[in-house]
Each structure stands twice: as C-alpha cells, then as structure tokens.
Simulated scan of single mutants.
Amino acid sequence: MPARIYRPARTAMSSGTAKTHKWVLEYVASTAREVDPLMGWTSSTDTQAQVSLSFPTKEAAIEYAEENGIDVVVQDPHIRKPNIRAGGYGENFATHRKGAWTH
C-alpha cells in the first residue's frame, strides 16, 4: 500500500506557522468510503488510512519508510516568500506623515 510524506501547510484561517514544521507520513486509502444508510456517517474497512505518523525531518520519514518496506511518494512543500512591508503595521499611525492620511 503506498503512502505519502509531506509537510502540512498552514491553516487558511491563520497566518501562523504552527504545526507546519514536522513531516507527516500518511497511507493512501485503498478502498472508498461508504455512507451508512441509517446514520449517514461515512466509514471504511481500511484501518491504514487512519494512521498518521509525524517525523522531525523528511530524511527521518524516508528512513522509516525504507526500514519498514513502505512505498512512498514525497511531496515537497511550496514555500512562499514572506510579504513584509517597509514600516509594517506601525506606519499606519506614524506622526511624521506629511499630508492627510486616508483609507
């Protein structure tokens, strides 16, 4: 069963980078999920899809996969350049401004 190794992206609701520094090994689901007709919940008989392992580095995750004979696909993250303004947020309230400040 194949697995993938990736570094999680930050959440869309936050600009912070918490939980994005570790690498994760997750198994790819081998069977489709089924909808329970009574409750409407989704379920699967594939228990490997529930496994998620965290590693401090990409090399550690790859080494673990090789030791245990796991076929893996490594997905490198798309690193975004930080958007830092000159002056930053405090520039909005500067007292040395020449001219009227408007939105």
Rank of each mutant, 00 (worst) to 15 (best):
E59R: 10
E26L: 06
A61I: 04
G40E: 14
R7G: 00
G90D: 11
G69Q: 08
E67H: 11
A65C: 13
A3V: 00
R33M: 15
I62W: 11
T20P: 01
R80E: 09
M13W: 09
P2R: 06
V35Y: 10
L25I: 07
E26H: 03
D46W: 03
E91P: 07
K58T: 00
A100H: 10
R33W: 10
N92Y: 12
S44D: 00
H78A: 07
D46K: 04
S44V: 03
S54P: 08
M13C: 06
T57F: 05
K19Y: 00
P82M: 02
Y64A: 09
E59A: 14
A32L: 15
W41A: 01
N83Y: 09
K22M: 06
S43W: 05
V51N: 07
N68H: 15
L53A: 01
G99A: 13
P2Y: 06
E34Q: 14
W101A: 15
H96S: 08
T31I: 06
G99Q: 09
A3M: 11
F55E: 15
R4S: 01
P77L: 13
L53R: 12
S30W: 03
I79C: 01
A60I: 00
T31D: 04
A12C: 00
D76N: 05
E26K: 15
N83A: 08
K58Y: 03
K58N: 09
F93V: 05
G87N: 02
V28M: 04
W23H: 11
I84K: 07
I5C: 04
A3F: 03
A86V: 13
Y89G: 00
